[in-house]
């Protein structure tokens, strides 16, 4: 829920298509060259020894371990849940991941498998990944996922409406989905690979936040490019500025394409030096990924033992 302060700040912004458009187009522009250069510079930070150890454990605890395939089965989801709770069966000091992320029909399976573990269940909803359905279907799907026990809903925005300039439709869908979530946290997927420009990423971020998003998320993982450092930079600037204006803190989740420890650490540096260290917590930053976890485990073991173990020494799921 938006706080009264936040609601008051943006009272009237979404009262008509023109006021909403004026607000979003009044945000400062993003210079692509400059944003790319800043993200690339932060990517050169050298995170070694104790800092690397800390970063790896932080990253593991931020992973939303994800399976979103047509071939997903209860067996596959149960196996992934076991991995989520105990990522490295040989080392109890490895923290569990933040959440697992599944399709709505597998939420119940995941909830059962994770009962009492502290690992949350997130479900995609609203006709993921395209979002091409009616609002009724989208909210109904959201309610079903929440009823099945999902603590977090990862919705997709209607990119077609956004690109057509119908911001109010996007806004209203987010508000309706937020309402359908009840107590569940709402992550709003912008699908930045389809929004294409950084100006659009900034506008979509603000649109989602004023509509009540608890998290803004880059991508479904089904579109290329998925998460990139500069796009995440623009989103981190948005949550930072939104907090300054409204007093409400919104989380960020890059998802898709983050496969290596090196990549994950670059994202943590980006968070640290953009939104600030207050965001370096699973409550405020997540990494949507599947194969990343094993690379983090491999690097963690290398830090501890000085040697790399082969991929067969880390469980698939």
């Amino acid at each position: 829920m938006t706080t009264p302060l936040a609601a008051a700040k943006f009272d009237g912004v979404a009262s008509s298509p023109s006021t909403l458009r004026a607000f979003l187009h009044g945000l400062p522009g993003v210079d692509r060259v400059g944003a790319d250069a800043r993200a690339a510079m932060l990517g050169t930070r050298s995170i070694k020894t104790t800092a690397k150890k800390q970063a790896i454990d932080t990253a593991i605890a931020m992973v939303d371990l994800t399976t979103l395939e047509g071939a997903d089965t209860p067996g596959k989801v149960r196996a992934m849940c076991a991995k989520a709770v105990r990522p490295d069966p040989t080392d109890a000091s490895v923290p569990p991941v933040a959440a697992v992320c599944v399709y709505p029909d597998l939420v119940a399976t995941a909830v059962e498998a994770l009962a009492g573990s502290g690992v949350k269940v997130a479900s995609v909803a609203t006709s993921f990944p395209s979002g091409r359905s009616s609002l009724e279907v989208k909210t109904a799907e959201t309610r079903l996922a929440v009823a099945a026990g999902a603590a977090e809903i990862d919705m997709v925005i209607d990119r077609g409406a956004f690109l057509a300039g119908d911001y109010l439709k996007v806004y209203e869908e987010i508000v309706a989905t937020k309402e359908a979530c009840g107590e569940a946290h709402l992550k709003v997927i912008l699908e930045t690979g389809e929004l294409a420009t950084y100006d659009n990423v900034r506008r979509a971020s603000w649109l989602a936040m004023i509509a009540g998003a608890d998290f803004i998320k880059t991508s479904t993982g089904k579109v290329s490019p998925a998460a990139t450092l500069p796009v995440t930079l623009v989103m981190l600037e948005a949550v930072r500025d939104f907090l300054a204006v409204t007093g409400r803190k919104v989380g960020v989740k890059p998802a898709g394409g983050i496969r290596t420890t090196k990549d994950a650490i670059k994202y943590l540096v980006l968070v640290n030096e953009t939104a600030g260290p207050d965001w370096l917590h699973p409550d405020w930053f997540r990494l949507g990924a599947s194969s990343l976890l094993n690379d983090l485990l491999m690097q963690r073991q290398k830090m501890a033992t000085g040697r790399y173990a082969g991929p067969d020494y880390f469980t698939l799921d």
Binding site: P28, G29, V30, D31, V33, G34, A35, A37, R38, E237
Partner: peptide, 11 residues
């Protein structure tokens, strides 16, 4: 006043 402010800060 219409500058890309975040990039202007970097600049």
């Amino acid at each position: 006043e219409d500058a890309p402010l975040d990039q202007a800060v970097e600049g």
